[in-house]
């Protein structure tokens, strides 16, 4: 059971959180201007690195805030990063 450092509530059991996948994938400013391929890339393609990965979490059973953390996917260890 990982302890995930919620920037507001402090470390809590991972069961209190919802995973939001890769961070910093912004909703395109003008989706209509994108080709089908560009739009599909936004919709369906995400990185899957072994090692450092910036990812989004939501403390769903706590303060309901979304935030971004960097985690080493090989070890599960978090580094702190500025919140969402």
């Amino acid at each position: 059971m990982l302890l995930i450092p919620c920037p507001w509530c402090g470390p809590r059991d991972e069961a209190e959180f919802h995973y939001g996948g890769q961070a910093h994938v912004a909703y395109p400013a003008d989706p209509a201007a994108l080709s089908d391929e560009e739009w599909a890339r936004y919709l369906f393609f995400r990185d899957n690195p072994k090692g450092r990965f910036a990812e989004r979490w939501s403390h769903t059973a706590g303060c309901r805030r979304w935030f971004t953390l960097t985690r080493d996917t090989a070890t599960g260890v978090f580094e702190s990063e500025a919140g969402a």
């Binding site: 509530c9 809590r12 069961a15 209190e16 059973a61 706590g62 303060c63």
Partner: peptide, 10 residues
């Protein structure tokens, strides 16, 4: 105070 899970209830 805290929002958390007790048994299987938030």
């Amino acid at each position: 105070c805290a929002q958390t899970v007790l048994a299987r209830a938030q």
